[in-house]
């Protein structure tokens, strides 16, 4: 029996970690990036790229893996100005998708993040705690995505299986 939720480990995404002041970032590659999100812990997207604002002067740029070479050329870490840091971190995160009518229940079991629509809006993305670990939680139309550091992925999988029932 168990909860009506489907939890699936996703393929690796291409991810670039961006740090630096907003104006420095925009100066460097504003035209190639989606619009800079206006509210903390929200996401924007354009041309298949997603931009997550998840900390002070800290963003994640995400794209499907087959575009990794492409975005590395555009956002070449070696050519960033001295006040912007771009680092490839694709392999550091493993994403799980959580969908189905009970997806929200699964989230409420693993994380203290308030995922009600009022608190975690339509384009919400935030780091929070899940199974005692740091996890990136994203709201999707079909449910949620939750990412943990790669080394913890097996444990996360084990945990999900256990709680799903």
């Amino acid at each position: 029996m168990g909860y009506h939720a489907h939890i699936e480990r996703l393929d690796t995404s291409a991810i670039i970690d961006l740090k630096g002041r907003k104006d420095a970032l925009v100066d460097w590659k504003g035209s190639d990036l989606p619009a800079i999100p206006e509210r903390p812990n929200t996401a924007t997207d354009a041309n298949g790229l997603e931009l997550y604002w998840i900390g002070n002067d800290h963003w994640l740029l995400r794209a499907p893996l087959d575009r990794e070479e492409d975005i590395l050329r555009t956002f070449d870490p070696g050519s960033a100005p001295h006040d912007v840091s771009a680092v490839l971190v694709s392999d550091t995160l493993v994403f799980f998708s959580i969908t189905g009518p009970d997806a929200g229940q699964i989230l409420s079991i693993v994380s203290p993040l308030d995922i009600a629509l009022e608190a975690f809006t339509q384009n919400g993305v935030s780091y929070s705690e899940a199974f005692g670990l740091k996890a990136l939680i994203i709201r999707r139309t079909e449910g949620y995505e939750l990412a943990v550091e790669r080394s913890y992925a097996d444990m996360a999988q084990s945990y999900f299986t256990r709680i799903k029932g």
């Binding site: 079991i109 199974f131 790669r150 080394s151």
Partner: peptide, 17 residues
Amino acid sequence: GQREGPVVLPYRHTPIT
């Protein structure tokens, strides 16, 4: 709660565990 068995304590694996 569900923190028992294999998940009572976190564990980390390398890509070739």
